Deep mutational scan, measured.
Amino acid sequence: SDIKVHVGDITVELHNVSEEFARLVEEALRLGLNEEQAKEWAHKALH
């Protein structure tokens, strides 16, 4: 599904992702990663 993740003043739109993936992206953003890094990190975490 499509999910918007908000962290501080950052909003990341995720398309066709699981809630778990979105949660991992949100966690990575909170750790200070940028959007691209957060998506990559979440992807690796799920595989």
Rank of each mutant, 00 (worst) to 15 (best):
S1Q: 15
S1W: 03
S1E: 12
S1K: 15
S1I: 15
S1T: 14
S1V: 15
S1G: 13
S1N: 14
D2W: 03
D2H: 15
D2Q: 12
D2C: 03
D2A: 15
D2P: 14
D2V: 15
D2K: 14
D2T: 15
D2N: 15
D2M: 15
I3G: 05
I3N: 07
I3F: 13
I3E: 05
K4L: 11
K4G: 09
K4D: 11
K4M: 11
K4H: 11
K4E: 10
V5G: 06
V5I: 14
V5L: 13
V5N: 06
V5H: 08
V5D: 06
H6V: 15
H6S: 15
H6I: 15
H6F: 01
H6L: 06
H6Q: 14
H6G: 10
V7H: 12
V7N: 06
V7P: 05
V7A: 09
V7F: 14
V7L: 09
V7S: 06
V7Y: 14
G8C: 08
G8R: 03
G8P: 07
G8E: 09
D9T: 12
D9I: 09
D9F: 04
D9A: 14
I10L: 14
I10Q: 09
I10A: 08
I10T: 11
I10K: 09
I10V: 14
I10Y: 07
T11L: 12
T11Q: 07
T11C: 04
T11Y: 12
T11F: 11
T11H: 10
T11I: 14
V12G: 05
V12R: 03
V12A: 06
V12D: 05
E13R: 07
E13L: 03
E13P: 04
E13N: 14
E13V: 15
E13C: 04
E13Y: 02
E13D: 13
L14W: 02
L14F: 03
L14A: 05
L14H: 07
L14T: 05
L14I: 06
L14G: 05
H15P: 06
H15W: 02
H15C: 06
H15I: 12
N16Y: 06
N16R: 04
N16H: 12
N16G: 14
N16K: 07
N16L: 04
N16C: 08
V17A: 11
V17W: 08
V17R: 05
V17E: 07
V17C: 06
S18E: 07
S18H: 07
S18D: 07
S18W: 04
S18N: 09
S18R: 08
E19N: 11
E19V: 13
E19Y: 09
E19G: 10
E19L: 13
E20N: 09
E20F: 12
E20M: 13
E20Y: 10
E20G: 08
E20C: 04
E20W: 09
E20S: 10
E20P: 04
F21Q: 01
F21W: 07
F21H: 02
F21E: 02
F21Y: 14
F21A: 01
F21M: 03
F21P: 00
F21L: 03
F21V: 02
A22D: 04
A22M: 07
A22G: 07
A22S: 07
A22K: 06
A22V: 08
A22R: 05
A22H: 05
R23P: 00
R23C: 05
R23I: 08
R23W: 07
R23V: 08
R23S: 08
R23N: 08
R23Q: 10
R23E: 06
L24Y: 11
L24T: 02
L24Q: 03
L24K: 08
V25E: 00
V25W: 03
V25K: 02
V25S: 00
V25H: 01
V25L: 05
V25Y: 09
V25A: 01
E26A: 13
E26F: 08
E26Y: 10
E26I: 10
E26N: 06
E26W: 04
E27H: 14
E27I: 14
E27R: 10
E27S: 11
E27V: 12
E27G: 04
E27N: 05
A28C: 03
A28V: 01
A28P: 00
A28R: 01
A28E: 00
L29G: 02
L29R: 04
L29A: 02
L29V: 03
R30D: 03
R30I: 10
R30A: 11
R30K: 15
R30M: 12
R30P: 00
R30Y: 09
L31D: 07
L31P: 00
L31W: 08
L31Y: 09
L31K: 12
L31E: 07
L31T: 08
L31Q: 13
G32N: 03
G32F: 01
G32K: 01
G32H: 02
G32M: 01
G32S: 01
L33W: 07
L33I: 03
L33Q: 03
L33M: 15
L33R: 02
N34L: 03
N34G: 10
N34S: 13
N34E: 05
E35R: 04
E35L: 15
E35T: 12
E35P: 10
E35W: 09
E35M: 11
E35F: 13
E36A: 04
E36L: 10
E36C: 09
Q37Y: 03
Q37N: 07
Q37K: 08
Q37C: 06
Q37W: 03
Q37A: 13
Q37G: 05
Q37F: 03
Q37R: 07
A38T: 00
A38R: 00
A38H: 00
A38W: 01
A38Q: 00
K39V: 12
K39N: 04
K39L: 15
K39F: 13
K39Q: 09
K39G: 02
E40I: 07
E40R: 10
E40G: 03
E40N: 08
E40Q: 12
E40Y: 09
W41F: 15
W41T: 10
W41M: 11
W41S: 13
A42T: 01
A42P: 02
A42I: 03
A42D: 00
A42K: 00
A42W: 02
A42C: 02
A42M: 01
A42F: 01
H43D: 14
H43T: 13
H43P: 01
H43R: 12
H43G: 07
H43M: 11
K44D: 14
K44R: 12
K44H: 09
K44W: 09
K44L: 11
K44V: 14
K44Y: 08
K44Q: 15
K44E: 14
K44G: 11
K44C: 10
A45S: 12
A45M: 15
A45K: 14
A45L: 11
A45R: 12
L46V: 09
L46F: 09
L46N: 03
L46W: 09
L46D: 03
H47R: 10
H47E: 12
